[in-house]
Design a protein around this nucleic acid. Structure first.
Lengths: 187, 187
DNA sequence: TTTATTTCTAAACAATCGTTTAGTTATTTT
DNA sequence: AAAATAACTAAACGATTGTTTAGAAATAAA
């Protein structure tokens, strides 16, 4: 044993996560990461391998940040009401981080949708599939809905979540609330 | 007078536009543009100034490509039906260009939403505002709608258009049709 | 056919990208 | 206190970015 790390990996990743959230992957340079994380490039590379590695850890950190919200949603049992609550909670996370726009996962989904990156794209696909399955699970709690309707509505909600992410970038809180209200008029 | 240009600017811009559409702005390099446009960097720079200039011309070219669709929409007078038709037409454009994903304007909107680029962002804002105003105009044709409802619905539709653009990237034609159907259940 | 002008090719530009390395500093173990 | 080990700083790496330039090729006007 010898000298100990003068930083906590979880802490510097949290800072990196916010930087990626603000600027996206491609528009965040190692130089910016170095400054924001407050540690040298050498330390970054020895801890996380490469830029891609920092990003993957940042997404983990984001997922961890939103874990409580997701768990609440998963354990809920009131059907559509809970999906709506989940939409509102998603917006709230954006509003409690003023400089960060939209949802990091959706932003990443958009940025990488035009690029070939197997690992990231796989993660994004899995995320969206899980979200859809959660919606399906909640919608099935309503005995009045037939399976075909449930599938259509789940798909609609996943895409509506994209619209919501776009909304949190530019629209006012009032407009976002209206959007959610209208989205669920349908369901 | 001396030697003439061996290329037609509109033609090479059309090629550049498709390349930007496929890859986005940042992930399209001058090297790629040189190859795709089939002319030398010098020629590109003398015609369009810089990469930014090529992109702006490409967006013009895209707008021109979709002009007919927009004009049809503008001149229509059946209200909501026409908005729905416009949504369907937007999807069709994506499907007639197999390698190009989503809508170039929406893609650009997403990519630049995290970057400070006054000119592009101004253009995107104007585009979205015009779209919203068109929706408002069509919605007003229905005498049963009050002004508050019209504003909410127009805003909803602009955001739904984002969801639609996301859908055209990954969803099947059937799923997209269902999404449009559900979107307009509301209106 | 010569001259003037423009476009062409191809090489080079400085700046930045992500990444690596050499050498110093600090801490633990012997 | 000496030796060993790990983390630090800071400079350099090659590759690629967007952009510019020098010189050859081509065509219009004289």
């Amino acid at each position: 044993m010898a000298r100990k790390k003068q930083y906590i990996e979880e802490e510097v990743i949290d800072k990196a996560m916010h930087l990626f959230w603000r600027n996206g992957y491609e528009n965040t340079s190692m130089q910016m990461l170095e400054k924001e994380m407050g540690i040298n490039k050498f330390s970054i590379y020895s801890s996380f391998g490469n830029k891609h590695g920092i990003f993957l850890e940042s997404i983990k950190s984001y997922k961890n940040k939103t874990k409580t919200m997701f768990d609440t949603f998963k354990n809920a049992s009131n059907g559509v009401t809970d999906i709506k609550q989940f939409f509102n909670d998603s917006v709230a996370i954006g509003f409690q981080n003023n400089n960060e726009k939209g949802c990091l996962v959706t932003n990443t989904y958009n940025e990488f949708s035009l690029i070939e990156d197997e690992l990231i794209n796989k993660q994004m696909t899995v995320f969206m599939d899980n979200l859809k399955n959660l919606f399906i699970e909640k919608l099935r709690l309503d005995p009045k809905k037939d399976e075909d309707t449930i599938q259509k509505q789940a798909n609609f909600l996943v895409l509506a979540k994209h619209g919501l992410a776009a909304a949190t970038k530019v629209n006012s809180q009032k407009e976002i609330e209206d959007y959610i209200e209208m989205t669920f008029n349908n369901i």
